[in-house]
Design a protein around this nucleic acid. Sequence first.
RNA 1: GGCGACAUCGCCAAGUGGUAAGGCAAGGGUCUGCAAAAUCCUCAUCCCCGGUUCGAAUCCGGGUGUCGCCUCCA
Length: 462
Amino acid sequence: MKIYNTFTRKKEEFIPVESGKIKMYVCGPTVYNYFHIGNARPFLFFDVVRRYFEFIDYKVTFTQNITDIDDKLIEQSIKEKVPVKTIAAKYIDAFYEDLSALEIGKVDHQPRATEFVDEMITLIKDLEKKGYAYENNGDVYFAVNNFKNYGKLSGKKIEDLKTGARVEANLQKKNPADFTLWKKSKAGEPKWQSPWGEGRPGWHTECVVMSRKYLGDTFDIHGGGIDLIFPHHENEIAQAEASRNKRFVNYWMHNGYLNIEGQKMSKSLNNFFTARDILKKYKPEAIRFFFLSKHYRSPIDFNEAIIIESSKAVEGFYQVLKQVDYLSFSDEKIEYEKQQIELIKKFKEAMDDDFNSAKAIAVLFEIVKKIKNPTIENSSKKQFARLLVELGLVLGFFQNLEEKLQNNIGTIAEDLINLMIEYRLQFRKEKNWKMSDQIRDDLKKLGIILKDTVDGTDWELE
RNA sequence: GGCGACAUCGCCAAGUGGUAAGGCAAGGGUCUGCAAAAUCCUCAUCCCCGGUUCGAAUCCGGGUGUCGCCUCCA
């Protein structure tokens, strides 16, 4: 399979460090707030990456950090007037709630920065000893000039960083591009003891020590949003490779940004949506479809129309599964034949090409077409339906199939609806269109949609 | 100022040299008392200009436009 590697800016044949195994690390949230819909993209995408690797029989170890100490948490704790720990706890809970609501699976290791302060101190000491770090008045910085190839991931040159007007002037640093490894704490801020006095770790260090612990010095995939390339991932490489002199990561994967109606999401533009906001209005699978219908590296535009369209598309999947009454044979063992095997191949080809989920979804629709095709016989439709579910699951759809295919409203309500349908049928026989239409309209007001088919009247909830 | 990405039907979107997947919308047909649902059919030569090639949406050069990174950021 091929993966686009940010490091080489090329699609490369994927070769894992250890055959049959995947070691991947994806940058997780900084828990100072609810995560927003843009944050959801990497979470959701890398969930699909894991699912796909498992589908093609890799054993995956997936690690994701939680940053539970940094400037933003401190700010938020002042805002909410509670300790940093409380902020972290609150938004860690929210993080898990939102992931679960989005039907994103658990990762294997989810370490928190505050659990790794000792390891970070050890790493910084090591960097200091090797001449890559220097202390100044309680802060410790990484000296980018001492690390050859600094900027090799992002393609930046230290000189350019200097001339760029946006690098903050900090007289404590030897070079403006040097980044913080350890930060002296101010009064009232959370602090840890260190050889440089009381302070807290800089942001980039946690990912190095955590990935090292769970995945080893060199691992396969490190992922995150495109904005993390610089400085975060660049600085991770610098620390990791300066301290161990081994290649840190083989494949760097970065997802594109999410825009809102063509604009960057920001609080000042008032177009900022948390994932939980969106989930109040739309189904998780609609959000999933929305993201996966575009290649992960492309920027994606979020707007109302598009998410409604996505909802409809997902609805179409359930429609055909209902049509074939999927639940009635969901436990049966079903063998695939040539046609299905061909489609699996097509699906894999799409996903093997740098996780081309948009193309993979097209295969799902191809299967839908087969199921809808009236000339295809029932036994064969069962096979296609099973295939739809199996491949859909790889992309994270159909995780609550039973629930979705049943109208869970209780037997009495169901009986009542059926009774109304019978009455309506009676009126229709009598050609009493007024009454039969009234029943239909009234039920619609209650959110019950009647569908007249050749074999009688079906209903579903709006 | 430095670096980079993208530009394909009304909308979303795949496609990386061999003659434009797919979804939504739209139009038309079937079904129906009507409506919905269901179902069938129709629907693009790829931002502009120039070049390479037997052949380009796909490669090269030049425009134009949109966006991103260089500061916390997925």
